[in-house]
C-alpha cells in the first residue's frame, strides 16, 4: 500500500514544469486569443441585438408617423376635394347668375333699341307724311284754293294719314 502514498519529489517537480509550460504556451497562444474572440463576439452580438432593438423601435415609430402622415394626407385631400367642389359650385352659380344677367341686359337693350328704332321710323314716316301732305296741299292749293271740295279732300287725306 505504501507505494500508493510514496513521496516522489521528481514527480512533483515535473508536474509543476509541465503545468507551467502548458500554461505559459497556451495562455499566450491559444486561450488569450480565444477568450478575446469570445468576448469580442459576445460584445458584437450584444451590440447587434441593441442595434436591432433600436432599429425596430425606429421602424415602429416611422410606421406610426407614416400612418399619421397618410391619415393627414387623406384628410387634407378630402378637404381639398370638398373645398374645390364648394368653390366650383359657387363659381357655377356665379357664372349662371352673370350669364342670366347679361342675357337680360342684352334683351333689355335689344328691346330698347327696337323701341327706339320703331319710334324713329314712326317719326320719319310722320315727317314724310306731313311733307307729302304739305306738298299735296300745295299742289291742291295751287290748282283751286277756293274750291271747298278740294279743301275737304285735303283734310280727309290728312286725317287718313294721321290714323295710319
Amino acid at each position: 500500500m505504501e507505494q500508493l502514498v510514496r513521496f516522489d519529489p521528481g514527480l512533483i517537480f515535473w508536474t509543476w514544469v509541465t503545468f507551467f509550460v502548458v500554461l505559459a504556451i497556451l495562455a499566450r497562444k491559444a486561450w488569450g486569443p480565444m477568450i478575446d474572440a469570445l468576448e469580442k463576439r459576445e460584445a458584437g452580438i450584444k451590440a447587434a441585438l441593441a442595434a436591432a432593438d433600436r432599429a425596430k423601435a425606429q421602424a415602429q415609430e416611422a410606421t406610426v408617423q407614416y400612418e399619421q402622415q397618410l391619415q393627414d394626407g387623406r384628410r387634407e385631400a378630402q378637404q381639398l376635394v370638398a373645398d374645390a367642389r364648394t368653390i366650383a359650385e359657387q363659381l357655377r352659380g356665379d357664372l349662371e347668375k352673370d350669364a342670366r344677367r347679361q342675357a337680360e341686359e342684352l334683351l333689355a337693350s335689344a328691346r330698347a333699341q327696337i323701341a327706339a328704332d320703331r319710334d324713329r321710323a314712326l317719326r320719319d314716316i310722320q315727317a314724310t307724311v306731313v311733307d307729302l301732305s304739305v306738298e299735296i296741299a300745295g299742289k291742291v292749293v295751287e290748282r283751286n284754293l277756293s274750291t271747298a271740295d278740294n279743301r275737304k279732300l285735303a283734310e280727309d287725306t290728312l286725317s287718313r294719314i294721321g290714323k295710319a
Binding site: D8, P9, L11, F13, W14, T18, V21, V22, L26, K29
Partner: peptide, 25 residues
Amino acid sequence: GLDISITKHVLMLWLAGAVVTAGFL
C-alpha cells in the same frame, strides 16, 4: 539533490501536456 528521473506518471503527464498544447495550438 532531488531525484527527477522519468517515471511512467511523468511520461503520462508529459503526454497529457503535449496533447493539450498541440491540440489547442
